[in-house]
Amino acid sequence: KELVLALYDYQEKSPREVTMKKGDILTLLNSTNKDWWKVEVNGRQGAVPAAYVKKL
């Protein structure tokens, strides 16, 4: 499985998103959308802005 690093804090704004903190390591589930990537963090799945994460 592919991992990404959170470059910034992000507070979810809808139920389809997830909150992450700078430095979090997230499991990347889907990166086909260039703006929003689906990730899993702390057992929750949701979208985060692609510009806020970097593939490891």
Results as ranks from 00 to 15, higher is better:
Leu3His: 10
Pro15Arg: 09
Gly43Pro: 00
Asp35Ser: 11
Lys1Gln: 13
Ser14Leu: 07
Asp24Tyr: 04
Leu3Ala: 06
Leu28Arg: 00
Ala51Ser: 14
Lys21Ile: 08
Leu26Pro: 00
Gly43Val: 03
Gln11Pro: 06
Pro15Trp: 10
Trp37Asp: 01
Leu29Thr: 04
Trp37Leu: 05
Thr19Asn: 06
Asn30Cys: 13
Lys13Ala: 11
Lys22Asn: 04
Val48Gly: 01
Ala51Cys: 15
Leu29Met: 08
Glu2Thr: 13
Glu12Ala: 15
Lys34Ile: 10
Glu2Gly: 10
Thr19Met: 04
Pro15Leu: 09
Lys55Ser: 08
Ser14Asp: 11
Ile25His: 04
Lys34Asn: 12
Arg44Phe: 06
Leu29Arg: 03
Lys38Ile: 15
Leu29Gly: 01
Val53Ser: 01
Leu26Glu: 00
Pro49Leu: 05
Asn33Ser: 10
Val53Gly: 00
Leu7Phe: 04
Pro15Gln: 10
Met20Thr: 03
Asn33Cys: 11
Gln45Thr: 14
Pro49Arg: 05
Ser14Val: 05
Leu28Gly: 00
Lys34Arg: 12
Leu3Pro: 04
Trp37Cys: 06
Gly23Phe: 04
Gly23Glu: 02
Val39Pro: 01
Trp36Lys: 03
Ala47Ile: 15
Val4Asp: 00
Glu12Asn: 08
Val41Met: 14
Glu12Leu: 08
Lys13Tyr: 05
Asn30Thr: 08
Asp24Gly: 03
Leu29Ile: 14
Ala50Gln: 05
Leu5Phe: 10
Leu29Glu: 02
Arg16Gly: 15
Tyr52Ile: 07
Thr19Cys: 07
Lys21Ser: 09
Leu28Met: 03
Lys1Cys: 15
Asn42Met: 09
Tyr10Ile: 01
Arg44Ala: 06
Tyr52Leu: 14
Ala47Gln: 14
Leu5Asn: 01
Glu40Leu: 08
Leu29Trp: 06
Arg16Trp: 15
Glu12His: 09
Gln45Leu: 08
Val41Thr: 12
Trp36Phe: 07
Met20Asp: 01
Lys13Ile: 07
Asp9His: 06
Arg16Asn: 15
Ser14Gln: 07
Gly43Asp: 07
Gly43Gln: 07
Leu26Ile: 08
Glu17Thr: 08
Asn33His: 12
Trp37Thr: 03
Ile25Ser: 02
Asn33Val: 05
Gly46Tyr: 09
Trp37Met: 04
Lys54Val: 15
Leu28Phe: 03
Met20Cys: 07
Lys54Gln: 14
Ala50Val: 07
Ala6Arg: 00
Lys54Tyr: 09
Leu29Pro: 00
Thr32Gly: 10
Leu26Gln: 00
Val39Tyr: 00
Gly43Tyr: 04
Val18Lys: 01
